[in-house]
């Protein structure tokens, strides 16, 4: 049984997915300790909101969190000791918004793997992706993929903080930005704030246009320029698609991506 999302739930048990209609300011729920689960959430953000998820001790959670809508939101996730979280997120907005995601590794041996795919078309998305190492022996890996098309702008930094005395912690953050048109913009900084010794931290950031040789290769097999552009742009969401084992959920996400990328 999944101990969360008491309102607006569609489906039951692990095989279905949850639809969260955000029309209040605060949502919070917990995943009980000693839980091993995979959760798919499709979230319609209708009102500025903060969504908080607490993952209690000794749990293993895979969370696929897809959002769409028109309002700002903060997603805060607290990972307790001896728990691991694999987090896959993607956001589909037609209007400007601020999206902040914060993951707090709150207990020793807490682990995070995060994959974010954020496409925009003619709108602006701002915000931060923050990772806070708040205990010893905590590990995080974050991969952020941004795509900007038309007059779209993405302005999002990834900030990883390893607090004082949180030794033996490890943090890795990678940002890749793809500009799909002349007027599109991406601003992103991978930031590491390290307040103690005996830690491992690395970061990287690359923003650019699509490799013309890749486009040429696809075109040499008969795909048009537009199709080649789409196939490369959409390729970055494949790691998320692979994790979605619900057909209805998958087709909804694909439809949203089609609307954004074309």
């Amino acid at each position: 049984m999944l101990p969360l999302l008491e309102t607006n739930i569609i489906g039951k048990e692990n095989k279905e997915y949850y639809k969260l209609v955000v029309d209040e300011n605060n949502y919070s729920f917990s995943i009980f300790k000693n839980t091993d689960t995979k959760i798919l959430i499709l979230s319609e953000i209708k009102k500025d909101a903060t969504i908080t998820i607490d993952i209690l001790e000794n749990s293993k959670v895979e969370l696929i969190f897809i959002s769409y809508g028109s309002s700002n939101y903060d997603l805060n996730i607290n990972v307790s000791r001896d728990s691991s979280l694999k987090l896959y997120t993607s956001d589909y907005y037609e209007s400007d918004a601020t999206i902040n995601k914060t993951i707090n590794l709150k207990g020793t041996n807490a682990y995070l793997y995060s994959y974010e795919y954020l496409p925009v078309l003619n709108n602006n998305i701002t915000g931060k992706f923050s990772l806070n190492h708040l205990d010893k022996n905590t590990t995080s890996e974050a991969y952020l993929y941004y795509l900007s098309r038309g007059n779209g702008t993405i302005d999002r930094d990834a900030i990883s903080t390893i607090e004082k005395d949180m030794t033996n912690s490890s943090s890795k953050e990678v940002i890749k930005g793809m500009l799909l048109s002349r007027c599109s913009k991406i601003f992103a900084k991978p930031v590491l704030i390290i307040k103690c010794d005996d830690v491992h931290a690395e970061h990287g950031c690359a923003i650019g246009t699509i490799d013309t040789n890749e486009i040429y290769y696809l075109m040499s097999r008969g795909l048009s320029y537009e199709d080649a552009l789409k196939i490369i742009s959409k390729s970055l969401i494949n790691p998320i698609y692979k994790e979605i084992d619900n057909e209805e959920f998958l087709s909804t996400v694909k439809a949203m991506l089609d609307k954004t990328i074309g």
């Binding site: 490799d211 040789n213 890749e214 040429y216 290769y217 696809l218 097999r221 196939i231 490369i232 959409k234 390729s235 970055l236 494949n238 790691p239």
Partner: peptide, 13 residues
């Protein structure tokens, strides 16, 4: 030949 990350051979062909 160029590498296309994220696109499977099957889908591409």
């Amino acid at each position: 030949p160029y590498e296309i990350n994220g696109v499977t051979n099957r889908d591409f062909i």
